[in-house]
Design a protein around this nucleic acid. Sequence first.
RNA 1: GUCCCCAUCGUCUAGCCAGGUCCAGGACACCGGCCUUUCACGCCGGCGACACGAGUUCAAAUCUCGUUGGGGACGCCA
Length: 504
Amino acid sequence: MSRIAYLQEKKMSEIRLRFPPSPTGYLHIGGARTAIYNWLFAKKHNATLILRIEDTDIERSTKDSIEGIIDGLNWLGITWDEGPYYQSDHISEHVESAHKLVETGHAYKCFCTKEDLDAKRQAAVSAKITYQYDRTCLNLSAEEISSKEEQKIPYTIRFKVPGGEGSLVFEDKVYGRIERTYRDIEDFVILRSNGTPLYLLSNVVDDIRDRISHIIRGQDGLGNTPRQILIYEALGAPVPVFAHMSLTLDPKKAKISKRSHGEVVTVQFYKENGFLPWALINFLVLLGWSPANDQEIFTKEELIQAFSLEGMNKANSIFNYQKDHPKFFTDPKALSINGHYLQTMPVEELAFLVKDFLQKAELWDDAYVNDKKEWFLSTIDLIRSRFHVLTDFAGPGRAYFSDDYEMDPKPVKKNLTKHEKIGEWLGMLADRYESLPEFNKEDAERVTRELADELDIKPGILINGTRTVVTGQAAGAGLFDVLMAIGRERVIARLEKFSREGLS
RNA sequence: GUCCCCAUCGUCUAGCCAGGUCCAGGACACCGGCCUUUCACGCCGGCGACACGAGUUCAAAUCUCGUUGGGGACGCCA
């Protein structure tokens, strides 16, 4: 094989994918999922992933969105090999292709006005007849065309769909064989009367130029595919492999969008609410894909290894979040997966992430990386077992880092208000802690139980009361571990303050 | 209205292509028990689904057809 032939073959067999967001809003989880699948496929096959910003909708595209999307991708750790390219840089190519298609007889100029077309469509709709462009302009004679051109009548360019009984068939990697009769495809517009190209065309022309070999996209693109394949063929370009993925719906089975669902569906939201990027990826990848076994938690390497289009589910999946749910601010499974990573990752790594959230809450102390590093690490390690998101460290975990923390009303009622003399008892407990020669777990527990015994009450009353006063929370790690983490002085101060002032 | 796609526990799903090993497995959620000092920790257990109807077959979650339900596409949006 000659070197050139070899290179050509290599070029042809090269696997290239793209993620083509349109910058009309921040990256949302549906878009992220698409990016993730493309990225995993690329990584698995040692392929090239391209980021292409499809910014030709000038009305809705914004610079903020572009930054937001890139930020989101970066945060998730999704990397690309080429780009970002911008679709708007290639508009002249798209226009050229449209004219080329006219020259080669695959498309034609259509002088019908928008008003005429709208009227025809309206009529069809009210008569309950299927509307399709009636090909008025396909049958124009050469004279009629040049006459209209001379009169400067604006025209669009429509793709000429093959006539007859035939149909277009392609093999989707996920959905299998898809067939669509030519008759069901109307002659679609590829160039507007103002001379600008439409998405269907631009997208194909860009994919041809970028030598995209595999297109992994949402199932909503399935309807476009036959028309796009027609364009590939008319342009004489090789048709890429298509793999359409199921969509992510809300609990009411509506497509998710930022407009109707708000922040919960944006990647940014998860970043701000204490998710670990990998946990989000892990959750998202499971929405519509599964390995051949029961594995649900993956390292990056494992996921890349396990990923395959075969595991894609054809049915749409539901992103199960309930608005205003008292307990779950997003899909419970997402929270559970995040909790898993948060609870099992190396503490040093976690501490680094927690720092950010403590800083935002103004709870950070530089000593946590110096003198108090050991304390900080062991405290994080102690309290993380109940936490699911990083923001928990500054929320329910606030009492470990500040004297100014909220009291959860539920345990207050259950553990404090219920017992008339609790203030007095906890004051006595503070004295016992005070007089301990050394404040350690064993002795603290011993004197607590002794006091309960003397007062003839259950130790649980003292223990729960103390937890509530000292942490403001109903739940936590073993109390005596908690006391050690908070430290004698603070424990005593908090107990005494409560004993003196009650709940202020 | 036309076309395309889909259909297993509340949710994510395994099993379906190559029918029996499935009175359907796992995870999350929920409920109960244990442990315990509490808990959103841990452990153990429970609840809970093949949309419906025909057909093929000795045998169907798995194959076929129909019904119903859901989703998507039908723009001079991307």
